Computed example of a mutant assay.
Amino acid sequence: MSAGGSGEDKLIARLFAPIATHPGALGLKDDAAVIAPPPGYDLVLTKDALVAGEHFFADDPPESIARKAMRVNLSDLAAKGADPLGVLLAFAIPADMTPEALDAFARGIGGDARLYGAPLLGGDTVKTPGPFTVSITALGTVPAGQMVRRASARPGQAIIVTGTIGDGALGLELRLNPERPGFKALDAKAADYLKDRYLHPRPRVAVARALRGRASAAMDVSDGLVGDLAKMLAASGIAGEIEAARVPLSPAARVAIESEPALLETTLTGGDDYEILAVMPDHELDAFNNLATAAGIGVAVIGRTHEGRGLAVHAHDGGQMSFARPSFSHF
């Protein structure tokens, strides 16, 4: 992403150069950015791509699309205990995207860059005959050797999650199938809350530092609580169990599930939560909970790890739950 004299360069100069204020971005006038992590820190890098019709609705507000693209990547950094350092943006613009939509998209990127301290450093802009596509590479830093990995969970520890689970998945299902009985029970405020949780993830950047040295393993919940926890346990070579009754739910999710119990499976497996899932020794729980509470983020202990293989999910009546589709998958 470099600003010069072509049509693309003029677009970049108008939309993105004003928000690329970090010195390492070089005003978007070069072919690359230059940045150094603080001494004694490691770089943490992550990348997610979002495609219209797959990760967001084509008629979603462009500013919201931009914020979602930023936040799903910042969520990955947070789960690794990393502080944001900057982002690289690439996006493919369809022919019918208006200048006003591009302006709104740039506002979304710039707004979240400021909100989360993740400055725009560069990227690429292209045209496409296909759907609108956005890809962001996020860079973060952690003190050397302190990145919280996925594959390092240990047996005999607590399984925790931040925030509430299932709101994003229910928000998506509400938009796809608004006539379901569970959604008929919601008032307008509750329905809008679920839709917003799908549209605007809430990356838990504020608790990233609290994970360091406390969590033995962590990841963000993007593809569904059950499936993501199963991935973490498998990568770590251990087993675990959780209780569905202990999974934290928002008031809106609770109303929907009480009216249509089948929505509990959507809540546990549907994805789009972008909460932090972690495994942590018992003696670290109070300190982590205090730090998260001070940041306005709830924490719930939902189960424990142990020796063995696999994940057991216990229903409210004590029986073991099974799922047709434990997590979201593109393939």
Rank of each mutant, 00 (worst) to 15 (best):
M1V: 10
S2G: 12
S2Q: 14
G5P: 11
K10E: 01
I12H: 00
R14E: 01
A17I: 08
P18V: 12
I19S: 04
A20C: 14
L26E: 11
D30S: 13
V34W: 04
I35V: 14
G40C: 00
D42F: 11
V44H: 03
K47S: 05
D48P: 03
V51I: 11
G53Y: 01
F56R: 07
F57M: 04
D59E: 05
P61L: 15
P62N: 11
M70F: 05
R71C: 07
R71M: 03
L74Q: 14
S75H: 13
K80R: 12
A82I: 11
P84C: 10
V87K: 01
L88F: 12
L89H: 02
A90K: 10
F91I: 03
F91G: 07
P94K: 01
D96V: 04
T98L: 05
E100C: 00
E100A: 06
G108F: 12
Y116D: 12
P119A: 05
L120N: 03
L120D: 02
L121D: 00
L121P: 07
D124A: 08
V126T: 05
F132W: 09
F132G: 00
T133I: 07
T133A: 11
T133Y: 09
V134W: 00
A138R: 03
A138I: 08
A138Y: 05
L139T: 12
G140Y: 05
V142D: 05
P143S: 11
Q146V: 05
R149K: 10
P155Y: 07
G156T: 01
A158D: 10
I159W: 02
G166D: 10
G168S: 13
G171S: 04
R175W: 06
R175Q: 15
N177I: 09
E179D: 15
R180Q: 09
P181L: 06
A185L: 02
L186Y: 10
A190Q: 03
A191R: 05
A191E: 09
A191M: 06
D196K: 09
R204S: 02
A210S: 04
M219C: 03
D220Y: 08
S222C: 13
L225D: 02
D228L: 07
D228Q: 09
D228E: 13
M232I: 03
A234I: 04
S236E: 02
I238Y: 06
G240F: 07
A244K: 08
R246W: 06
P251T: 08
P251E: 15
R254T: 15
I257L: 03
E260D: 15
E265L: 08
T267G: 13
L268G: 07
G270S: 06
G271R: 01
G271M: 04
D273F: 08
D273R: 12
A278M: 00
V279N: 01
M280D: 00
L285Q: 01
F288T: 00
L291M: 10
T293K: 02
A295T: 15
A300M: 09
I302C: 08
G303Q: 08
G308H: 07
L311T: 01
V313Q: 04
G319F: 13
Q320M: 14
M321E: 15
S322Q: 13
F323P: 06
H330Y: 15
F331P: 09
